[in-house]
């Protein structure tokens, strides 16, 4: 394998990880702060993709890129307010059932409105093509995708680590009772986190609609690897999720690069098993009292 080829394969793997990252960050945040395992997260990803196709007819892809994630985030706020909120202090099994039901409702609603067949959608003309540097070539669209994802991750990091909002959220993850005792209500923060996390899933849907099949069950397909990422990364750790997502993508990509395509998706589950054996809290998981 030449160096150029190897670098391309590493990039392919990392980019695959970036998709999981956009989904897994939201999953991890919503679970860490609210204790809700959001099985419906993939549903928001799918809604983002479908909205893109509908909106692109009127606003173009650029317009859809801006409007669709915001619309999905608003939907997230509504769902948080009326469905998640009653369950924060309830038996986790109940919220699990709730979000499992929501995932089914989301998928069936998309099937009902748009039909089961994949929706016709392609990369906009101006974003097609390849970037060539000598022997090295890479899809122009994917290069943009990586850029957008890096911006999102950086923005989220700044928000969580450099602002007052972020400080309360991180304190809430560690010890919600203490935050309450200090007279701070976590409810509006939870709404913010739901909007962010679910909006990110919607954004992933927008970004992937041009290169993946857009069909009602697409959310279901991405949710399982996203959970694997959260488990490997460990709860409460921002960088844990980032590293785990890239690692999952990389392992998958390199398995294919070295000729083990048939085992590429199984490998990430094996990796999860190994991590859990040796580090039950995940690679960078923090010790969070209420989850122990």
């Amino acid at each position: 394998m030449t160096t150029a080829l190897f670098v391309q394969q590493v990039l392919n793997g990392l980019l695959d990880g970036v998709y999981y990252l956009l989904i897994a960050l939201g999953l991890s945040l919503i679970f860490s702060l609210g204790g809700i395992v959001n099985l419906a997260h993939g549903g928001f990803f799918a809604i983002g993709a479908y909205l893109t196709i509908t909106l692109a007819e009127y606003l173009g892809f650029g317009g859809a890129f801006v409007v669709a994630p915001v619309a999905v985030a608003l939907l997230g706020v509504v769902i948080e307010r009326f469905l998640f909120r009653p369950f924060y202090r309830a038996d986790p099994l109940l919220s699990l059932l709730l979000t499992f039901g929501l995932a089914l409702v989301a998928e069936q609603t998309l099937r009902w409105i748009y039909g089961a067949a994949p929706m016709s959608f392609a990369i906009p003309q101006g974003l097609r093509g390849q970037i060539w540097i000598g022997d090295f070539s890479y899809s122009y669209y994917r290069t943009i995708l990586i850029g957008v994802a890096i911006l999102c991750v950086a923005g989220l990091w700044v928000l969580l680590h450099k602002t007052a909002f972020g400080r309360v959220v991180r304190a809430g993850v560690q010890n919600p009772d203490m935050v309450g005792a200090l007279g701070i209500s976590l409810e509006p923060y939870m709404a913010g986190i739901a909007a962010l996390g679910i909006g990110l899933a919607g954004l992933a849907g927008v970004l992937l609609a041009p290169i993946y099949a857009v069909h009602p069950a697409m959310g279901q397909e991405i949710i399982t690897p996203a959970f694997v990422v959260v488990v490997i990364g460990g709860l409460g750790s921002f960088w844990g999720v980032v590293v785990a997502a890239l690692l999952v993508g990389l392992v998958k990509g390199l398995m294919i690069a070295f000729g083990y395509t048939a085992f590429s998706t199984a490998a990430i589950y094996l990796m999860m098993m190994l991590v859990l054996l040796f580090r039950p809290r995940g690679l960078f998981g923090e010790r969070i009292q209420r989850f122990e």
Partner: peptide
């Protein structure tokens, strides 16, 4: 190549095909 049915990103395979 045998492709797992849950594989949706073909980039690594396409790079090999190109090569």
């Amino acid at each position: 190549e045998l492709v797992p049915t849950d594989l949706s990103d073909f980039s690594s395979i396409l790079t090999k095909i190109r090569n």
